[in-house]
Simulated assay, not measured.
Amino acid sequence: MAKLLLSLHVLASVLFIGPVAVAVSMFPARARVALADGPDRASGAASVRLLHRITQVYAMLGLAVPVLGIGTAQVMGVMGDVWLTTSIVLTGLAAAVLLLFVVPSQQAAVDALDGEASGAKDAAEDRERAERGLKVLPMTAGVFNLLWAVVVVLMVIRPGSTTGA
Results as ranks from 00 to 15, higher is better:
106 Q>C: 11
125 E>L: 05
87 S>D: 03
122 D>A: 14
121 K>Y: 06
60 M>C: 06
117 A>G: 14
111 D>K: 14
114 D>P: 07
109 A>E: 01
119 G>D: 12
91 T>I: 13
105 S>D: 10
115 G>F: 08
94 A>E: 04
67 V>N: 09
86 T>G: 05
93 L>G: 01
119 G>F: 12
106 Q>A: 05
65 V>N: 04
82 V>D: 15
78 V>E: 01
121 K>V: 03
89 V>I: 15
123 A>W: 05
60 M>G: 10
82 V>K: 14
92 G>K: 12
109 A>F: 00
77 G>P: 15
62 G>D: 00
68 L>D: 00
83 W>C: 02
87 S>R: 04
61 L>V: 09
106 Q>I: 05
72 T>L: 08
124 A>W: 08
67 V>T: 13
69 G>S: 08
86 T>K: 12
93 L>V: 09
63 L>M: 12
86 T>F: 08
73 A>E: 00
106 Q>Y: 10
64 A>P: 10
107 Q>W: 11
82 V>A: 15
64 A>E: 02
77 G>L: 14
87 S>T: 08
122 D>C: 10
110 V>Q: 01
96 A>W: 13
77 G>D: 14
85 T>C: 11
97 V>Y: 03
102 V>E: 04
108 A>K: 03
94 A>G: 06
63 L>F: 10
71 G>I: 01
84 L>R: 00
96 A>M: 11
72 T>F: 12
91 T>F: 05
113 L>Q: 04
106 Q>R: 10
76 M>N: 08
77 G>V: 12
95 A>E: 08
90 L>Q: 02
89 V>Y: 11
70 I>F: 09
99 L>N: 13
69 G>F: 02
